[in-house]
């Protein structure tokens, strides 16, 4: 078996009753990779994760893990770990007993168990809390217990459901670093589900962008950020000016503008920072201005519809309603293979 397909999802279709949540999904994941499933709620990312874990029946298709077809394997024999968004700790047990839970079921006990559990608890920095009941811990600590509880089982794949969404900003950064460290140290294959592009870009080796139960684009964070395949992905990663192309013309409602663009592109997208203000052939009026520290963000009313741009805050501010010129430089645009 080639190392390029440690976990493969083959033509996977998942449904809740008659409602299809994921259709014909194909994905190959390499051993040791950190994958982000990124998409808005309802895109099927959590459903896909639950199917890999065995918590959701597969309608059709296959899941192959480490050369073994696990499509019909019960969840408790899949060797797959999952850190729930709510952490799902056992409140009647101590940190130690939470982490020991799976090992005890395997029949481990005595000094071997003690050593392994304490090792896992130490690896997430919770040694002083080992004998505490879990409800007494903070959210960040609880998450680390959940992480240790899954890691100690040495799963083939560890999945995390929205791992950072319940933490405050400071803890989020801390946990992000922690997850990366743990992953590099253990070489574990990890999949995490998120709706936050910043998390996905910062953490993942590869990002799988999902939409309406199908994969929209797979790529490295750089690829997703700089070369979104579609208007949907572009919108998701912060391109705010997205236009369709037809016969080398930018199309916005009734208006068409001739533009030099790659011949195969179906659309063009600009980040606000890629739209220069005060120069260029296009004209608009300022609808709103907002100050964002070192940048100033403008929303312009133009013949192309609303255009968002941001410029250095050191430049003099344009008043509301004033007429301004702007440019849409083709060289600064991301070409989209699909407009939608």
């Amino acid at each position: 078996m080639s190392d390029t397909s440690f976990l493969s999802l083959e033509n996977l279709t998942l449904a809740y009753g008659k409602t299809v949540a994921v259709e014909g999904l194909n994905l190959e994941i390499t051993r040791g990779e950190l994958i982000a499933l990124l998409g808005p709620s309802g895109c099927g990312k959590t459903t896909t994760m639950r199917a890999i874990a065995g918590l959701m029946a597969v309608k059709s298709g296959r899941i192959v893990l480490d050369g073994r077809d696990i499509t019909r394997t019960p969840a408790n024999r899949r060797e797959v770990g999952l850190v729930f968004q709510s952490y799902a700790l056992f409140p009647h047990l101590t940190v130690f007993e939470n982490v020991a839970f799976g090992l005890r079921l395997k029949g481990m006990g005595g000094a071997a168990l003690e050593e392994k559990v304490m090792g896992a608890i130490a690896s997430v920095g919770l040694t002083p809390f080992a004998r505490r009941k879990t409800p007494d811990l903070s959210g960040g600590q609880q998450q680390r217990v959940a992480l240790a509880r899954s890691m100690v089982m040495e799963p083939k794949v560890l999945m995390l459901d929205e791992p950072l969404s319940n933490l405050d900003a400071r803890l989020r950064l801390e946990m992000r670093t922690e997850l990366q460290r743990v992953q590099k140290q253990s070489g574990l294959t990890m999949i995490f589900v998120t709706h936050d592009q910043v998390e996905a870009l910062a953490l993942a080796d590869r990002i799988v962008v999902m939409r309406d139960g199908a994969i929209e684009q797979i790529g490295t964070p750089e690829e997703i950020y700089n070369r979104p395949a579609s208007g949907f992905v572009a919108d998701f990663v912060g391109f705010e000016n997205i236009f369709a192309l037809r016969d080398g013309h930018l199309v916005a409602g009734e208006t068409e503008i001739a533009l030099e663009a790659p011949p195969e592109a179906a659309g063009l997208a600009w980040r606000p920072a890629a739209v220069p203000l005060g120069q260029g052939p296009f004209a608009g009026t300022v609808r709103s201005v907002s100050f964002a520290g070192n940048r100033r963000e403008y929303l312009l009313d133009t013949a192309l519809g609303p255009i968002k741009t941001e410029v250095d805050a050191a430049l003099p501010a344009q008043g509301l309603g004033s007429s301004v010129s702007f440019d849409l430089p083709a060289a600064a645009a991301a070409p989209l293979r699909r407009f939608g």
Binding site: N76, V80, L82, F84, F90, F101, G102, L105, S150
Partner: peptide
């Protein structure tokens, strides 16, 4: 919460 049971199952129960 029912995810507690799912967590137990994924740990081998």
């Amino acid at each position: 919460r029912s995810d507690m049971e799912e967590a137990a199952v994924l740990l081998g129960a």
